[in-house]
Simulated scan of single mutants.
Amino acid sequence: MASGAYPVQFLHLPAAGGGGGQWRNLGAAYAAVRFLCPQGQSLVLYAADPDGQQQQPQRIVFVYPILPGDAFERLDGATLSWAEPESGNEFALCFLDDAACGAVCGAIAPVVRSPAVDGIADTLAGLRVAREQGAPAPGGGDIAARLAQLSIARP
């Protein structure tokens, strides 16, 4: 088994109108959070042999790109679920133990937190105070100049 890949049962609930509203077990797999190109940070499921050993080389059977703002829910200690916003399909991973579920949840958490939203109240308060006092906005008011500096500073 690859480092950081945990055995799971993969479940699927089709969007309303398909599958009769019942969860289907899609089988056993190994779950991990990996960086894939061009998807970026993704929840990746790898195939498992019938005897429970992971195949070499690793064969990916499912990839879900993790985006800021995605909603993953830990239903109980060992079950993680989410819904695709576009299709409405729901998925769940049932881990063997709470620790494995916690490890995957911990790897997902930094990705789904949107840096644009974290600390937004402090940023807005700073802008409001600067405007009221007649001082320039934090970080300078000219966004075009700031973007130019960023693009020049990076190779």
Rank of each mutant, 00 (worst) to 15 (best):
A2Q: 13
A2N: 07
A2D: 12
G4K: 06
A5R: 03
A5C: 09
P7D: 06
Q9H: 12
F10G: 01
L13Y: 09
A15H: 12
G17I: 08
G18W: 08
G20P: 02
G20N: 10
G20C: 06
G20A: 06
G21N: 10
Q22V: 14
Q22C: 10
L26H: 01
A28K: 12
A28R: 14
A29N: 04
A29T: 02
Y30V: 00
A31Y: 02
V33L: 09
R34E: 15
F35V: 13
C37W: 12
C37I: 10
P38I: 06
Q39V: 05
G40V: 03
Q41G: 04
Q41I: 00
S42D: 02
L43S: 02
L45Y: 03
Y46P: 00
Y46D: 08
A48I: 13
D49A: 15
P50Y: 03
P50T: 05
D51Q: 13
G52Q: 08
G52W: 00
G52D: 10
Q53E: 15
Q54P: 08
Q55E: 14
Q56M: 11
Q56D: 13
P57D: 06
I60L: 04
I60R: 08
V61M: 13
Y64M: 09
I66F: 09
I66E: 03
I66V: 15
L67V: 04
L67W: 06
P68C: 03
P68F: 01
D70H: 12
A71N: 11
E73M: 07
R74H: 05
D76S: 15
D76Q: 11
D76Y: 01
G77D: 07
A78N: 13
A78Y: 07
L80A: 09
S81V: 05
A83H: 02
A83V: 15
A83Q: 15
P85S: 13
P85R: 15
E86Q: 14
E86I: 06
S87P: 06
G88H: 08
G88A: 06
N89I: 05
N89E: 10
E90M: 10
E90V: 02
A92M: 08
A92P: 05
C94F: 07
C94V: 15
F95S: 01
D97V: 11
D98Y: 06
A100I: 05
C101S: 10
G102C: 12
V104F: 03
A107P: 01
I108E: 01
I108L: 12
A109E: 14
P110L: 10
P110A: 11
V112F: 10
V112D: 04
S114N: 14
V117H: 09
D118V: 15
I120Y: 11
I120P: 00
A121T: 12
A121L: 14
D122I: 03
T123H: 10
T123Y: 07
L124T: 07
L124D: 07
L124H: 12
G126W: 03
G126N: 11
G126Y: 04
R128W: 11
V129D: 13
A130P: 02
R131C: 08
Q133T: 14
A135R: 14
P138A: 10
G139R: 05
G140R: 07
D142K: 09
D142Y: 05
A145I: 00
R146A: 15
L147G: 01
L147N: 03
L147P: 01
L147V: 09
A148H: 11
Q149M: 07
L150R: 13
L150E: 12
L150S: 06
S151M: 11
I152N: 05
I152K: 11
I152T: 11
A153Y: 01
A153P: 00
R154K: 13
